[in-house]
């Protein structure tokens, strides 16, 4: 991360909790004493469409949008979606991708084709891409909605933001009754990278 501003592009499919995840990252940056901006578009995209959220933090942030070729991290909540946004990746940027496949109805109906092996495509293009079995971990922990916190756990090992701030914000932003499960999922994500 050579620039003073850190750029994180979150991508995935409407309904995956991407907006909440981007709020958690931005808030963690704010509590780490940094300026932060984030941007995404709500509305029609929420109905199962493609979702992207731009998060930027640093001493002073002007634009809420990341430029092409400048994302330090692409945090992809769905494996195919990581491929759609690779033009945003900085030369030395990292891709963290949930290996889960979400096949849209039009592909299920045979009107379009869902790429056969998006994970292979990703590692061919970005050899250092981190494949995260977040969906499997979330199921193991008993709730598919924990994908979010697993991915944030992995991300937290790669940013300059304080570990304690991450935990505090995750605990505060997730629904109260799912707090412990989310914190556990966050730690599982962290452990993946520590290995």
């Amino acid at each position: 991360m050579t620039t003073p501003t850190t750029n994180i592009l979150l991508v995935g499919v409407g309904g995956q909790g991407i907006i909440l995840a981007s709020e958690i990252i931005s808030e963690t940056a704010l509590r780490s004493g940094l300026d932060a901006k984030k941007s995404e578009v709500h509305g029609m995209s929420q109905r199962g469409g493609v979702v992207s959220s731009h998060v930027r933090f640093g001493p002073v942030v002007h634009s809420p949008l990341i430029e092409e070729g400048r994302a330090d991290v692409i945090l992809s909540f769905e494996i195919l979606e990581s491929l759609r946004w690779l033009n945003f990746l900085a030369p030395a940027g990292a891709v963290l991708a949930n290996t889960q496949k979400i096949v849209p109805p039009i592909a299920a109906a045979g009107l379009t084709t869902y790429l056969a092996d998006p994970a292979a495509e990703l590692t061919a293009r970005v050899p250092g891409a981190v494949l995260v079995p977040a969906d499997a971990i979330a199921r193991e922990l008993g709730n598919t909605r924990l994908v979010n916190s697993v991915m944030l756990g992995v991300l937290s090992t790669m940013t300059p933001l304080a570990e304690d701030a991450w935990r505090a914000v995750v605990a505060e932003f997730v629904p109260a009754k799912a707090r412990d499960a989310n914190l556990a999922a966050f730690e599982r994500g962290r452990a993946l990278r520590a290995r």
Binding site: G14, S45, G49, G69, L83, P104, T112, E121, V126
Partner: peptide, 14 residues
Amino acid sequence: PTHAAVDGLTPRPP
């Protein structure tokens, strides 16, 4: 950009 977006992926119309 050093990487190109992959073309021809299935769209996800709302």
